[in-house]
Design a protein around this nucleic acid. Sequence first.
DNA 1: TCTCAAAATAAAAACGATTTTATTCTTGTT
DNA 2: AACAAGAATAAAATCGTTTTTATTTTGAGA
Lengths: 353, 353
Amino acid sequence: MAETESARRTPPTIKTLADLTGYSIATISKALRDSPVVAQATKDAIFKAAQEVGYQANARGMALRTGKTYQAAVLMPVTAVREYEWDGVEYTQILSGISQALEGSDYRISVHVIRDTQDGCDMARRIMDQGLADGIIFSGILADDPRIDLLVESGFPFVSLGRCRKPLTYAHVDIDNEWAAFAATERLIAGGHHRIALINPQRPLSYAMDRIDGFSRAFAQARLQTPADLIAEGDLSTRFGRESALDLLQRPEPPTAFICINESTTLGVLSGLGSLGLQAGTDIDVIAYDDINVSAYFTPPITTFYQPIEVLGRTLGEFLLQRMAGGDPQTLKQVFRPTLIERQPDNLGARPA
Amino acid sequence: MAETESARRTPPTIKTLADLTGYSIATISKALRDSPVVAQATKDAIFKAAQEVGYQANARGMALRTGKTYQAAVLMPVTAVREYEWDGVEYTQILSGISQALEGSDYRISVHVIRDTQDGCDMARRIMDQGLADGIIFSGILADDPRIDLLVESGFPFVSLGRCRKPLTYAHVDIDNEWAAFAATERLIAGGHHRIALINPQRPLSYAMDRIDGFSRAFAQARLQTPADLIAEGDLSTRFGRESALDLLQRPEPPTAFICINESTTLGVLSGLGSLGLQAGTDIDVIAYDDINVSAYFTPPITTFYQPIEVLGRTLGEFLLQRMAGGDPQTLKQVFRPTLIERQPDNLGARPA
DNA sequence: TCTCAAAATAAAAACGATTTTATTCTTGTT
DNA sequence: AACAAGAATAAAATCGTTTTTATTTTGAGA
């Protein structure tokens, strides 16, 4: 294929194709977008030429004219006071999932790191006002999340990982946290436990409340009092898990079992148990939630409710594509129920309360 | 402040300011960029007006005219065959670090998920050719990495996390893997170990080779044969760590100590030890590399070489900003030496070889 | 063969900025 | 008072598209 020297230097534009084929740039543009007003023969010729010179539409030109950015914004939370502690939040896998969904579309992912809710709110507004992206994905939803109010009202396309507690209609993906907590608690109660600790995230987070709801429901069903004094709330760091375990176990009425919100806190709890000379599975029962499949490698392996996070990411991406194409948010909702993976006979550790 | 109804609807452009102040758009543009050709009084008036209507330059318009995108591309590797296994690669923290460095600049981060080296190479080329970003950050450097060749040759601004083995000049940030492996090995040899296993990433990765170099240097220094049969190479998953430990320990001449490449493999090795009824720190010594500060919570806590990954991210971002501003790659190099955090008396586990 | 509608294509405007070129306004000098 | 130089500003071109409007071509019917 003959490539002129000049064509080598700068990337071909629509003008290049016009000169090459003899058609006007208007026709080229329409042909490439497969408009019905242009004759099939013309389209063929133009496509062929485009192929030959390796024409790729200039994103900036397109963006300016259409007002679209072909960017999907992802707000990635990073806890500021983390001090390099592991919090088990595998955003990598979420991004991977989103990216899988966006593959083949013209959309790219832009990541915006946010440090707190206010930051997230500002960022969402900037993205809308300045047109930094055509849609937004975010997580860490609060019971009353200002970002959802803002975006729902404006009609800007978005998908949230998690649900707020307001009766609003919006696209979202979530885990059935209420159910997961209920099932875990019910299981432990069936094993003879009454004093069960819940290692939970902080309250304003919507899913923290969902977990407490499920926890309480299981106790209510068993006609038992919910041990509210055994609910620990904090960041999701391993340190928090460890310190909670140490604190709770040294109280007058210690728990006989733990329910952990994620892998990092589970590791912390196991570390705390170890320090006190206690053994998970024999002295104390532990059930955890896991989304990166790591609990199988703890010593001992821990029974978990498991939901691969990448799948949620994929769904987020799919939903966002549909929303950006004008899809009805009413239909774009999915709540995943994690699967129970038994690795411990939970009833062995029961101790008299 | 009086805002007209029409100004409320669509965001103000340079034209809005022109109408408002009576100056031409050319003058407005120059004033906002603080050009010396426009009178100070005029600048003041224009700045004031811009402030009042909350003018923000339209990124798309600027991008089209200047050819810049104000995007920093990050190539994020995701192992395709991972099957949701944890690999301990905390890209979240790298992104957080980069984002910190870019704060205050006009640059935003776009993340491109890549599945293998070929994918990464294609993506780098696309970013350059299509002008998808003004600079690139990537990691997972191979001993002979085609991306580095490509980008060095083209002069496109980039910073790599890791170094290749060719004598090229380019901006990079790295960990002193050779030294870390040497120091860990030396320490274990001093503790009486001769049969030391190295849990390592796959060979084409440059830092895998660095680690083997350091490992070998320590044996050479002690006038011992490097136990090449005890070098396990694989992905960084917890499963790989576990399976390696199980395999190595059941051989005729098993190792008496392990050096692990990162937290996920360490956890896997500990899991393997547990399955065999062995105890780290008493039966077998383990030293690990850690960048998310999680080894303190293993049972028992593991001695590590620690370097918070977020700091590397920050440096990557700073270097990229300088490169995009035309900085000399010769001066943009930094190699971090991790700090030793002792949590185990490594010589206790020594067994006769 | 001529007319007219429909089909196909071309021309021009627009998106919002920057940059180059042109014009107007000051001011100092003769 | 006229002129030139320099400062300040305005006008126009440009980046690469899409979209609206205008023009040309084609083909059928009279």
